[in-house]
């Protein structure tokens, strides 16, 4: 063996001491992290009234009464729910497609591995702003701008989803294999060509995966947007609650549960295709 690479007893003793030191440091850090998480959980729960006994006084009885009042579910008006259900799904589809189209260029431009800080910083600020405002608040804004109906819902979903998807796409872009990009650059391929031929082929199954997940989320989100007048099945539920029609409200919740389950199952199947598990 080459002398300079030999693991001598002195070196071995040195590394034994290093290993002990690293081990002590690692366990101390782990204990501190666990302690920190527990303290955070107890602190936040306690400060929101989680340990106040009087808060729990009549809660159980109210829930039982509500459940009793809503059984059996009442489907007698189900023929009038078809249009709101279709609207909800269409809002989800249009909102997701619009946000995906916007998030692809924003995601590429926001990647710190591709673009200079002068470009990435405003993109990150824009994505943060879009994401920071919940869909429901976007819904109120767009209902004011476009009036009641599904169009306001589409833009509300698209605005928040662009922020979320843009952030995901940025992170995905920052983690692509650099080798293929370097190869393209060494052959004089333009930045746009590197994005098209080096980055997108590595990303598009993941992009499709995240977008489908977002679509499933948007369908659930679209059901609540009705509450602020942005169309869909949400308005029916809010109306049923306001009229104390709990049996109809339960029927509507069951319909939404079925809708979301079907969409999730379909989404999972399509995702498997995109991720190549079925090919």
């Amino acid at each position: 063996m080459n002398e300079e690479r030999a693991f001598t007893p002195v070196l071995e003793e040195h590394y034994e001491q290093c290993l002990d030191q690293w081990r002590r440091k690692r366990s101390a850090v782990r204990y501190l992290v666990v302690l920190g998480i527990v303290a955070l959980a107890v602190g936040s729960f306690g400060n929101t009234g989680g340990f106040a006994r009087d808060q729990y006084g009549s809660a159980a009885a109210t829930v039982v009464t509500l459940l009793r009042d809503s059984i059996p579910p009442d489907f007698s008006r189900c023929h009038s729910w078809m249009r709101p259900i279709i609207d909800t799904v269409l809002m989800g589809v249009a909102g997701t497609l619009l946000s995906t189209l916007l998030a692809i260029p924003l995601g590429l431009l926001g990647a710190r591995t591709l673009c200079p800080m002068i470009v990435t910083t405003p993109i990150h600020l824009l994505l943060n702003a879009l994401r920071a405002i919940p869909s429901l608040v976007w819904g109120i804004l767009f209902v004011a701008a476009f009036g009641f109906g599904s169009l306001a819902g589409v833009f509300a979903l698209a605005a928040h989803s662009t922020g979320m998807l843009g952030k995901f796409f940025t992170e995905l872009t920052e983690h692509v294999e650099p080798g293929p990009l370097q190869a393209l650059r060494s052959e004089g391929v333009s930045s746009l060509g590197v994005a098209r031929f080096g980055i997108l082929p590595q990303l598009h199954p993941r992009m499709a995966d995240v977008s489908l997940y977002r679509f499933e989320h948007n369908i659930r989100e679209a059901t609540t947007l009705g509450a602020v007048g942005a169309g869909g099945i949400g308005l029916e539920i809010v109306t049923a609650f306001h009229l104390f029609e709990y049996r109809e409200a339960l029927a509507l919740l069951l319909v939404i549960l079925l809708l979301v389950t079907v969409i999730d199952a379909l989404g999972a199947k399509v995702r498997r295709v995109f991720l190549g598990e079925l090919s």
């Binding site: 294999e177 080798g179 293929p180 370097q182 190869a183 052959e187 082929p201 590595q202």
Partner: peptide, 16 residues
């Protein structure tokens, strides 16, 4: 660059 080609050590291929 347009006239050259490189075979990279970390094969610059896209696995999928």
């Amino acid at each position: 660059q347009r006239r050259l080609a490189t075979v990279f050590q970390e094969r610059a291929l896209i696995g999928r």
